[in-house]
Design a protein around this nucleic acid. Structure first.
Lengths: 202, 202
DNA sequence: AACTAATGAGCCGTAAGAAC
DNA sequence: GTTCTTACGGCTCATTAGTT
């Protein structure tokens, strides 16, 4: 009781089941006199040989196929039409697999890219918040320093004017004459300080 | 010359080719006396009916399948085994298509997400450079103000000490006695200024 | 009870016909 | 030619019947 019939007449599985041996009559050349089931599976050796040939040339012409059959004795028992169909199916399978594989490859790439982008995003996000924080800090200090410089300037101006008044008043009382400020030593420090403070004004 | 045999005995394609009518012997019930080629294409009506049944129940049990065949007269001529196989293949097709479609959907989503992430990245990148620029600006000014406050403080200290010396020297010459600073009006301004400047020191 | 052989369903891969 | 469809071989897994 043969269930699986191999092209070439050599069964490679004899487990169980019932199947008639029906010669394939659609064989154009009509040379197939040997019994052959209506559904065949090629032996691993045959498949290997076909795969090798496919690897070299996935799309052999009719002539080339006949040549291949002649060259490869292991395939000599297979109908040329079957060889043709095998190559057709093989190409179809390869195409399908290739498309699926490509899609998956694209998927993987996109996923990896996504991961990187998200990490980068995260990093930038943190950097931004850090910078915003620092910026706020400096903004605060900017105001602080500007204001301070301003106040400092005003304070110094007042100090100077008060000192002027006080000193001139005191001196006029003590000596009876007005004192010329410009003749006092160290006066250049006062004026340069004033200039400096003036520059700091916003 | 019949090449395509429809389950039900009604051929719908009579192009060419030769095929024997071989009764399928694996039919368990053995009821199939009608001739049936090994390869049939179901009529559009049959496919439609099967699709409808599949839509309701993609995986009918053996019992359910028999029931379906009884209920649907258009399928009554199809071998139960063929029905089984049809559902099998139908499931397989759906699975493949679903997987491919899902993969493409994931791809689209990933692509869209990637685009968004890149845009966001760009935005953040710009924000970061802007903030870094501003930060540099403030950093520069921070140093500037700190240094200035420092210098200001030293300058004021020097001014104060020079003023002290000058004033006391001048007064001692003019009046012949040492003057008590603390008794002078406006002296509180000097000390508060000094305190203020001292606070500004880093 | 545990082990084993038989049965049967589903899935997968694939040969080959059909349709385009 | 390619693509889709039918059908089948082989496999795994689960259930079952028969055996120790």
């Amino acid at each position: 009781k043969v269930r699986s019939v191999v092209a070439g007449g050599e069964p490679f599985s004899l487990t169980a089941g019932v199947r008639e041996m029906i010669p394939v009559t659609s064989c154009k050349e009509g040379k197939m006199g040997i019994d052959q089931g209506k559904y065949v599976r090629y032996t691993p050796e045959q498949v290997e040989a076909l795969e090798r040939l496919y690897h070299d040339c996935p799309k052999p012409s009719s002539l080339r196929r006949q040549q291949l059959i002649r060259e490869c004795p292991i395939l000599s028992n297979i109908d040329p039409k079957q060889i043709k169909v095998w190559f057709q199916n093989r190409r179809c399978r390869e195409k399908q697999r290739k498309e699926a594989a490509q899609l998956q490859a694209v998927n993987r790439k996109l996923t990896a890219m996504n991961k990187l982008l998200m990490e980068e995003n995260d990093r930038l996000q943190k950097q931004v918040s850090q910078l915003v924080y620092e910026n706020g800090y400096f903004l605060f200090f900017k105001d602080f320093f500007i204001v301070d410089a301003n106040r400092l300037c005003c304070a110094c101006c007042r100090v100077i004017s008060i000192a002027e008044e006080t000193l001139s008043e005191f001196l006029s009382k003590a000596t009876g004459t007005a004192v010329e400020w410009v003749q006092m030593p160290g006066m250049k420090v006062w004026t340069s300080l004033f200039d400096f403070l003036f520059c700091l004004l916003p």
